[in-house]
Design a protein around this nucleic acid. Structure first.
Lengths: 344, 344
DNA sequence: TTTAGCACTCCTCATCAGAGAGTGCTAATA
DNA sequence: TATTAGCACTCTCTGATGAGGAGTGCTAAA
């Protein structure tokens, strides 16, 4: 599967990619020799580049243009060539400070993180809050609100807070609500939302005949409360990437802004990532979302108690500065993980 | 101040504007006579158009092009020509249904409303939740959370729910927190957040010497809780307006997307509107935000108990279909107002 | 007061040629 | 045998040119 290039070809490939990352113009053989002072003539480089094209690493927009890296080239670059990840302590400082200064509500924190990632990288910042599997119930409160309404507040170990208003169809009194809160808290604290959902379905089925009135009420109320619990997704910095030369094409901008608005699709994408360790790099067509075939996505999970809970990342053009971005995402996820383990 | 046009000029102006709204190409005299069958020749129309240009209603991109309406023309159009507002009951149906089906949390409701306005109008949807002046405290709860954290939940009469995590620096016990909740609720229920803020500052100053310990704690905790309370702003549908021909210019798109991201500026704009009755139309350069000089903003407040609480609206190109959009915004604000007065 | 006629202006679009960048191939070279 | 110089070729890009068209303003006639 994995092709190995001899050192010389690799150097040429690296040169083409680097040049293309700097400015998105097709790279010619002469330019490569001059800029990266090879000890070979343009003709030799041309031969090598022709070989690289045959192997699928480079492509030509048209016969007499220079070469452009393919997705395969970027993949090879990320896998094999990339220098060690540098810890950019300046940026980390900013990130760290901002994160600590802010509120501790996870949604706000992630929104902020996404913005920071965007402003440092000049690409799109991405952050996804813990979903039902990653959210451990800490406390649930049923607070009487207007006449026939109840406000439910859910607090999780991870720091996610969610609220919801539901109808008080059974006309439960404040003291009953208090008792229900207590019951659910006793019963389900420490379980993930997903586990609670499943448990609840089970119990409701089982208790249908046993018919303990308050219990039934509690359970169905609780079910309603956590029914809509899901990840929140933050994508920020659209105006940043509009400055990039590859987005001078309006059709592209349209596609991208539609993709960003469709958060549903992105949640699906994220689900696949949750199982993997470390920083994930998804280049162009590797992405199952075809709308993102001209973009690369760099993501990493952050963890709480060793379990992946959420995702942060950066979305940018394929010709992005991978080493910087990867280390940035990596560092950010470490910072968040540390923060979570302290704060938990 | 207000110029009056004779009927014939007005008809010509109307024709130019309507044509330009249909498609953004400069309108020529011949086209006007043909399309809107005037009983005059192109030459006559030309003379009229030249007069309208002198008066500042029309302008020419270049000597031998047709005419384009100026901001002044749109203003005149909106003030004088616009037919009566039509109640588009189909759209209202959709809006009404969607709004009722959704949750009752105001932020979610407004987000949804903004999306609906956008999808119906094909422009940007705008919605702003009640700020400190428009939010009447219904209930505040201090819930013990992690070790040294308190979750504060604020419920308002309008249906806004806000939560915040604050540090429990004074190590207050759950029962103390309960007592504080009770105290604040008794004291401040029915006041707006703004009033509470002012009151709180006052009381804190007064009590500094009197020194009732729990009271002091309650007040400062409460202050911290409502300190950050502010409007939330929802602007949706960027990808919608990218399809419009006037946004085929990238620089424009950049400007607009930057403007949208800077919600701060928009909040300022909104503040001015809160005092006015009915639907407001802000055309191009009338807008204090210079970044929006190529856009028009149609907004209206919605009310609770006769008091304006929030704002909804539509942002689009200047050559928008004003009568439809105005009636849409008007209807939407009525629906929300009704909803609020029932639900309150 | 209205309109026909006309010269004029300016934009748009297609065409074309020349410059430039880059290639692949071949033959000479180290 | 690997490398390189040379060269013909291909393709894009740019700017110039010119025809066509839409629309105007002005003048003079109806």
């Amino acid at each position: 599967m994995e092709e190995i290039l001899d050192e010389r070809s690799e150097r040429v490939l690296l040169a083409v990619i680097q040049s293309y990352i700097e400015h998105p113009d097709p790279v010619g053989s002469r330019y490569v020799t001059k800029k990266y002072d090879f000890n070979y003539s343009p003709a030799t480089i041309r031969n090598i580049m022709a070989d690289l094209e045959d192997m699928g690493f480079l492509s030509q927009p048209h016969t007499s243009a220079g070469r452009v890296p393919t997705d395969k080239a970027y993949r090879y670059y990320v896998e094999n060539i990339l220098e060690e990840i540098k810890d950019d302590s300046d940026l980390l400082e900013v990130l760290n400070k901002k994160i600590r200064a802010g509120t501790e509500d996870v949604d706000t924190l992630l929104d902020e993180t996404s913005r920071i990632l965007s402003s440092i990288s000049k690409y799109l910042g991405l952050a996804v809050s813990p979903g039902p599997e990653g959210s451990v119930l800490r406390k649930i409160e049923f607070v009487p609100y207007k006449d026939d309404r109840i406000a439910v507040v859910i607090l999780t170990d991870e720091g996610v807070i969610r609220h919801k208003i539901i109808k008080n169809e059974l006309a439960l009194s404040p003291s009953e609500l208090q008792r229900i809160s207590n019951y659910i808290n006793r019963q389900y604290k420490g379980f993930t939302i997903k586990e609670i959902r499943e448990n609840l379905a089970e119990e409701l089925r089982r208790d249908r005949e046993m018919y303990d009135n308050l219990l039934q009420r509690s359970l169905s109320l609780c079910r309603e409360a956590i029914y809509t619990y899901g990840s929140h997704i933050f994508i920020t910095g659209l105006s940043q990437i509009l400055d990039l030369p590859e987005f001078s094409d309006i059709e592209r901008i349209k596609r991208i802004s539609k993709t960003i608005e469709d958060k549903h699709a992105i949640i699906n994408l994220i689900d696949r990532i949750m199982d993997s360790e470390g920083v994930q790099v998804i280049i162009g067509t590797e992405n199952p979302l075809s709308e993102m075939k001209e973009l690369s996505v760099i993501v990493s999970t952050f963890k709480e108690k060793g379990r992946p809970t959420g995702v942060i990342g950066i979305i940018g053009p394929k010709r992005m500065d991978y080493s910087t971005v990867i280390s940035l995402v990596d560092s950010a996820s470490r910072i968040l993980t540390k923060l979570f383990d302290q704060g938990g």
